[in-house]
Design a protein around this nucleic acid. Structure first.
Lengths: 350, 350
DNA sequence: CACACAAATGTATGCGCATACATTTTGGTC
DNA sequence: GACCAAAATGTATGCGCATACATTTGTGTG
């Protein structure tokens, strides 16, 4: 049936199918678009022809005539860590349920993101961008002239509708938790100007101090490799702290790893908390106290909203914010709960 | 310039641009396709018009005329864990470098994968499927009648070209390593009939025994949630073992977690090893001995090969196998190496 | 300055489908 | 059986682009 892999026979078209079924191309098309409008017997003949010819409609031709690509463009920086994957899974499931495909574009490391974005804009009905802040205004304008655009994570462009997770109040809650443990020399690890999210977390951190003096943030990228450096600053006494609030889990885990390795005890000597609730957070000892974000849901909602925009339903643009959850484990100083308890947040498998 | 977000002006086309630049549509098209064939001055005028109108070519129209979608279809079961993400990143980077998009389809949980696959086949120039084994022969035939198809991970269809990582010999190597540690009651955890990869790992496991009696595999899904159950079988004595070779890291980590939680010491009481080298593997104590796969490279190579198939370069179909690496940490019984040593495999960030 | 030839640009067509509109068939009804 | 509306099907067109082919413009030579 697939005679010579490589010797692909000329692909079937509506014409081929129509001829074989003894009908017109319109009927073939209708069998696929509005089956109920075709008489049972005719429909059956057409379906047989389609099956026999292995007919698959040409997407581009359909898009051109139908005035829709039936595809979403999703732009993410990259895919390391569970964060983006979850987001993507949430997004894809909603898009696919509506019969739309997802065209993925990873922006990090690309030399000409602008060109890639424009090309993308010509192939999809709408674009959701994480990190729209990094896209030149000019490019964004061109994109928006063609398709609706949504942002992921908060951004400065007031006119760009976006979806993000809550940062400030959760950060404040987590910080207060550390203060309640009697910690007094809290240090925020991560550069607030790296991303709006980080800045907001830092703002919550500051807010929780209720006017008490706050140590300046300890600048660091949000990557595993920064952990050693940060930990060494603490170990050498260069940075004084009895609790580290890291901007994400990767950083927190790496810091904690090094601290423990060098003989410190977490949390008795120093508490460490993170942000994201990655899988590792519940496997390390002590379990990492952190903040869980409804990432999958974030993706799903963005997809749903984009679909609305594509099909034309209005609804006013908005800056959507999804709530997060503080996940208490032991790295903050809390005693181990029941064995299973620390796995509470594990329902989103990773 | 984007006046009313929502009041999108009628999109520019080649005609609009041509008119504005005072040239014919052919010239506009040529400016984009073969710039060198257009006189400098004319080209500049056209480019200005394009810029002023925020013109972005209509992908479907281009695809239709150009006889190519300039897109790859990539089908993965899902995206949890670093495995698929890495693969996807490797794939995307190569595809994007060639100016092609990647249309992602996640098969797990979809009720009608067949329909989704067919739709995909109409929108891309080639499809790479992980888990092609689960696709009905009939569907696969239809796909292959339209576009080239590649498999990821080994599969039974001899006629389907595919890319996979090596399993058998690494499994054998890892097993011998456990035997060298003096372990004698090794048990393989995971159902060999779950996937060809698992089967091959089990075969390597068996081969390493050199004819000595081998315990039957302990059936289990390759998921975190199975860990508790498996560990309990060991703890209750129902399964006797001094070393567990788990089919993947998720399983291994969950098993180890429970064992340690119940008071056993890993590795002195029992050794545990996994497969995949996920991030957590190097953060847990003891560090998890496992097998690292060149996943990113796997994706990149598959993309490169698919691109060749799309542009028509032949080269005989082949079953490509990429080598894996045993990563020794402490869960197998080895002493901790230099602090940094256990992080050796960490260069692929996660 | 006439000519040949190359470079630059324009004209016309088809890619494969969806669909508005035209035509034919069907099923009732009196 | 004649007539009419509704159902079923067919015909013709355009979506926006790339490109083969036709035409015009430019360059160099004798």
């Amino acid at each position: 049936m697939a005679p010579e892999p490589g010797t692909r026979s000329p692909r079937a078209t509506v014409y081929t199918v129509a001829e074989r079924a003894g009908v017109s191309v319109a009927t073939v098309s209708r069998v696929l678009q509005e089956p109920h409008r075709v008489k049972e017997a005719t429909r059956a003949r057409v379906l047989v022809a389609i099956d026999e010819l292995d007919y698959v409609p040409h997407g581009a031709a359909r898009s051109l005539a139908y005035h829709r690509h039936e595809a979403h463009g999703l732009v993410l920086p990259e895919l390391s860590g569970p964060y983006y994957s979850e987001l993507l899974m949430g997004y894809e499931s909603v898009a696919a349920a509506a019969g739309y495909s997802v065209v993925l574009l990873l922006s990090e490391g690309k030399d000409d993101v602008g060109a890639a974005l424009r090309r993308l804009a010509g192939k999809v009905d709408g674009i959701v961008i994480m990190g729209a802040a990094d896209v030149p205004e000019r490019t964004l304008t061109a994109l928006r002239a063609r398709v609706p655009v949504l942002g992921l994570t908060r951004n400065d462009r007031a006119d760009l509708e976006s979806f993000a997770t809550e940062n400030r109040s959760s950060a404040e809650e987590l910080t207060r938790h550390l203060l309640d443990h009697g910690r007094r020399r809290l240090v925020f690890v991560g550069s607030p100007d790296l991303a709006i999210d980080v800045r907001e977390r830092y703002e919550g951190f500051v807010a929780a101090h209720d006017g008490r003096p706050v140590a300046p943030p300890l600048p660091a990228d949000l990557r595993e490799t920064e952990g050693g450096r940060v930990a060494d600053l603490v170990l050498s006494g260069e940075v004084e702290a009895d609790a580290l609030m890291c901007a994400n889990d990767e950083l927190a885990l790496a810091v904690m790893d090094r601290l423990v390795d060098r003989g410190l005890d977490v949390p008795s000597d120093i508490a460490v908390v993170g942000w994201d609730d990655v899988m590792t957070a519940r496997y390390v000892r002590p379990g990492l106290t952190t903040v869980a974000q409804p990432v999958r849901d974030l993706g799903a909602r963005a997809a749903a909203r984009m679909h609305d925009l594509i099909v034309g339903s209005t609804g006013d643009p908005d800056q959507h914010t999804l709530p997060t959850t503080v996940v208490i484990r032991q790295s903050c100083g809390c005693p181990p709960a029941g064995t299973e308890a620390q796995h509470t947040a594990a329902d989103t498998k990773e």
